[in-house]
Design a protein around this nucleic acid. Structure first.
Lengths: 244, 244
DNA sequence: CCGATAGCTTGATCCATATCAATGACTTGT
DNA sequence: ACAAGTCATTGATATGGATCAAGCTATCGG
């Protein structure tokens, strides 16, 4: 897969943060109108990726953080023997690319799951802006904190939960996130393959498939390929051991 | 275990960052002398914990980040059913407590493994200082980046590695970190129990014990209770799948 | 010095999940 | 409409590490 990026930088950016419907989920949350306008200027460009295209890979210079405008991404780390561990899936309004803040080089790879639009934000510019806008500084720390929390959650899941609990937690998490983005909470359209789900949860693809079947038998969900209807959030939550 | 803290704030802090021998491992790395002096003022106090004492627990207000002055800590997350997942061990010069940056409440608990001195740094003060000292701002981002990288590493380990690889990676990582702190790299004194190691690595205590025995048979290490001599870093590294 | 306790080791058995193997269901291109 | 490829399901079998059980070894208080 080539390291392809397709830039859609038509003169001025057509849609900066000010007009973006995702503002409340993304960095602008809680900023004043003037601050959001400033933030919009930091969006250096927007990029569109086709399914399977790579945004960055290990060793790439890390000057930007990225926000999903539409579509979805996965980021994953590689072992030297060709193994993969998916670290997260990124939905519209979510930020990613914070790894590599230490060495200024990315350690992981980010790939589009579907046709995906990305906003690129210059880290340097953001940093400067933080000095004059305290609210933005706080927002950025909040985003970082959320990232760290999410990773702790996943560590708990991989280290301590059984297969059933893992998948339940995964479904609940996705469901919540799609709800925040205007989904009904009834139906989810999975942007990732079973392979991706299994990899992320530390399970074999067959195990994921069997669990989907079992959850369906138990009337918790209905599965049809990538479409999942959630019938019993309550019980799924209990299975997941809640706090996910 | 009571939520005990014993403050050693004798008038002025006896030893701020300027005189600290760990400076090069901790936040002051790469700062000018004047900046280090400023940073020292942000260390609001130093705390000494006895083995098993808690520094913070889930739900506690998160205003500080912490640096280990001497001794060692573990931080872990709890499941609602009483389960534990250790998220990390913290050695002298390392910073921790970055979880909770999002909600300003800690999600995890931090406990001393031995008698441990901690420097507390006010997040608000640090934030202010960042605006006037770019180098400090970069340092903080570096520390955050390192935290995120370390967590990705652990995710890879828990998700994809076999028991043997996990323990090898763990030993290599500890060895490196003790070396940076002036250790010989020959001998490690483990500050944590087998229970802790197993929990951290997602293994049963018995498995850890058996692996130690096997590594010893293979002449890779010598184990005597909490003392470990590393004989063959090379091969351990290979077993770990390197990049740990 | 002795008993109690916490931490560790070692052996025997079991089980959750991986792995192997085959088939089915969409999707895409010709 | 068919061939080929990718993705998903389902069944049979294997296994790495958990769990259960017993004993060992420092350490500490009295």
């Amino acid at each position: 897969m080539p390291h392809a990026k397709q830039t859609l930088n038509i003169g001025h950016l057509l849609q900066a943060c000010k007009e973006c419907s995702l503002a409340e989920l993304c960095l602008p949350r809680g900023l004043s109108e003037a601050e959001v306008e400033e933030l919009g200027k930091v969006v250096s460009r927007q990029v569109t990726l086709q399914p399977g295209e790579t945004l960055f890979r290990p060793g790439d210079r890390c000057n930007m953080i990225y926000a999903v405008r539409s579509g979805s991404m996965k980021s994953f780390r590689l072992t030297e023997d060709g193994g993969v561990q998916i670290l997260g899936f990124h939905l519209p309004g979510e930020l990613f690319g914070l790894d590599g803040l230490d060495t200024h080089l990315h350690h992981c790879e980010a790939v589009a799951l579907e046709t995906t639009r990305i906003c690129e934000l210059s880290i340097d510019e953001l940093e400067k802006l933080c000095c004059t806008h305290v609210a933005l500084h706080h927002e950025i720390l909040r985003v970082i904190g959320r990232e760290i929390s999410a990773e702790h959650e996943l560590l708990l899941l991989l280290g301590k939960k059984r297969a059933e609990e893992r998948l339940a937690a995964f479904l609940i998490s996705l469901c919540k996130r799609f709800c925040q983005r205007g989904g009904s909470g009834e139906k989810i359209n999975l942007p990732m393959t079973r392979q991706d789900i299994g990899n992320y949860l530390g399970l074999a693809i067959e195990t994921v498939s069997r669990l989907f079947a079992r959850f369906q038998e138990q009337k918790l969900i209905t599965v049809q390929r990538r479409q999942v209807w959630i019938h019993d959030t309550e019980r799924l939550g209990e299975m997941a051991g809640l706090d996910g």
